[in-house]
């Protein structure tokens, strides 16, 4: 992979997070929000966007100050930066979107410990220029939001018979309540991971047979 991306462009860095290195489906990072708040599509979207804000802003700062922050205290410095943005988005959501803030509850504050964010700072933003860092953060964020939305849409349709609070099947639909309860998160995530791995394998095989 290093050879492939010897001279990576911003577009490459952006695209890799969406599919090839998708934080949830490939790297299996950020499982806590991916399971806990994805009981409806709107909650998934809100969590994805809040994480996007934190990840992109932290990456900009970490990348800007990458030569100033001493290596010995870098993790602490990253956590300070991340926690600042998380607290800010917590206040802003409470001020402007109180309903969503109430739904997401403690999970907004828990973005601080989402290892996706610290992971991107350590593995990418601290070693690259601001432009690339933003592209990488945006790509990862879109990939994360996409993954959360996949889980949230499946769970809301099956567990509540609706999508973005719009009823799909009418009043006679008997919802699978289990899908919006915690086990539903594991079911949905498990099946999605299964699908992703199966698809990757299938494509690899197809390429191999074509090359041969």
């Amino acid at each position: 992979m290093i050879e492939e991306t010897n001279n990576p462009t911003s577009a490459d860095e952006f695209l890799k997070g969406i599919w090839r290195e998708n934080p949830v489906f490939v790297a299996v990072l950020g499982m806590c929000p991916a399971l806990a708040v994805t009981n409806s599509a709107i909650n998934s979207l809100a969590m994805g966007l809040a994480t996007t804000f934190v990840l992109v802003s932290s990456s900009v700062l970490v990348s800007l100050f990458r030569k100033v922050i001493p290596k010995q205290v870098r993790i602490t410095a990253y956590i300070i930066i991340i926690a600042t943005f998380v607290t800010a988005i917590d206040f802003l959501l409470a001020a402007f979107f109180p309903v969503i803030h109430k739904e997401l509850g403690a999970f907004i504050a828990l973005i601080v410990v989402n290892c996706l964010i610290l992971g991107r700072q350590e593995a990418f933003a601290s070693k690259n220029k601001v432009g690339l860092a933003v592209a990488d953060a945006l790509g990862m964020s879109v990939g994360f939001t996409f993954a959360l939305l996949c889980i949230g849409i499946i769970r809301e349709i099956l567990g509540n018979g609706s999508l973005f609070n719009i009823s799909l099947f009418g009043p006679n639909f008997e919802p699978w309540v289990i899908m919006i309860l915690p086990p539903g998160g594991f079911f949905a995530l498990g099946f999605l991971l299964l699908f992703f791995n199966w698809y990757t394998e299938w494509r690899k095989k197809k390429n191999e047979t074509r090359d041969a």
């Binding site: 922050i69 300070i80 930066i81 926690a83 600042t84 800010a88 206040f91 802003l92």
Partner: peptide, 23 residues
């Protein structure tokens, strides 16, 4: 080491206070 963390903490506090006062 201490001063760089101190500066980071100072600016973090500044941002948090202004967001808090605003929201």
């Amino acid at each position: 080491l201490i001063s760089s963390l101190g500066i980071a903490g100072f600016f973090s506090g500044l941002v948090l206070v202004s967001v808090y006062v605003f929201t």
